[in-house]
């Protein structure tokens, strides 16, 4: 497989205000190196606050690392599966599809061409010309998912977005996602679900406190990760099975 992206000792820090004229640096990502291969689905696992989402933002080009390098070995587009991005409550579903699509980088004529598919996928044909502030949470989520599914980057970055809306739609959206992931598309998937990671990923990078703890085959990484988590929880007196 061809290597398309390489993170070399990447670190990202945030500046927090700490009193009068003073700031404190906090490193969300300390030292992360890994490669991304064309066509693979790479899983990122780790506890909350480990830095997984920040790494996705670096790969998407949203933020620039404060240390280390991001080397692109090929020309590609990478973006987050961003749901409901740019949605305005007072506008109609139709207007929001165009707005969100353009924010996601799609040309307007492309959105026009795929508009009917988007609305049909979201199952909102009846209410597409009503303002989305009249939609339920689930309806908005469906529309958001349907739009972002159409923005088709070369590298898709997914952050726990599996399953949106009500039960029936969750299955449909999860299937659509999985179909994308299983195709030849390059995907980086952040998930807390063992079954998704095991089923979808070719390789897993385990992030712990902003550093790569280990990387390798999904099953082996999950076992190691769960084992470590179990030890931690037992040490802190919590129920390890919780």
């Amino acid at each position: 497989m061809e290597r398309i992206l390489e993170l070399q000792n990447v670190g990202v820090c945030y500046r927090n205000r700490a009193g009068f004229l003073r700031t404190r640096l906090s490193w969300a990502v300390r030292d992360v190196s890994f490669d991304l291969m064309a066509g693979e689905t790479l899983g990122l696992i780790g506890s909350n606050g480990a830095g997984k989402s920040t790494i996705l933002r670096v790969i998407a080009g949203i933020i620039q690392p404060d240390k280390g390098r991001v080397v692109r070995h090929a020309d590609f587009t990478a973006s987050l599966l961003a749901l409901q991005v740019g949605f305005v409550p007072y506008l109609t579903g139709r207007e929001n599809v165009f707005l969100s699509g353009i924010v996601l980088g799609m040309p307007k004529r492309e959105i026009t061409r795929r508009f009917d598919d988007i609305v049909a996928f979201a199952e909102l044909e009846e209410v597409i010309d009503n303002p989305i502030r009249t939609y339920s949470v689930g309806m908005k989520a469906r529309l958001g998912f349907a739009v972002s599914l159409q923005a088709d980057p070369d590298v898709l970055l997914v952050d726990e977005a599996m399953g949106v809306g009500d039960a029936a739609f969750r299955e449909k959206s999860t299937n659509a996602m999985r179909e994308k992931i299983r195709s030849n598309k390059t995907v980086v998937l952040v998930s807390h679900s063992d079954s998704s990671i095991r089923e979808l990923c070719n390789r897993v990078v385990w992030i712990d406190h902003g550093q790569v703890a280990d990387q390798g085959a999904p099953v082996r990484m999950l076992d190691k990760y769960r084992e470590r988590m179990g030890v931690r929880k037992a040490a802190s007196g919590e129920d390890a099975t919780a």
Binding site: T77, L91, L99, P107
Partner: peptide
């Protein structure tokens, strides 16, 4: 990478959306 035409579309669509939203609020 985003094309210039997408940026122009973005600017005018967002501007339109803001004006529309402002108008529908009242």
């Amino acid at each position: 990478m985003r094309t210039l035409s997408n940026c122009v579309e973005l600017i005018f669509h967002k501007a339109y959306a803001e004006l529309r939203a402002e108008a529908t609020r009242a």
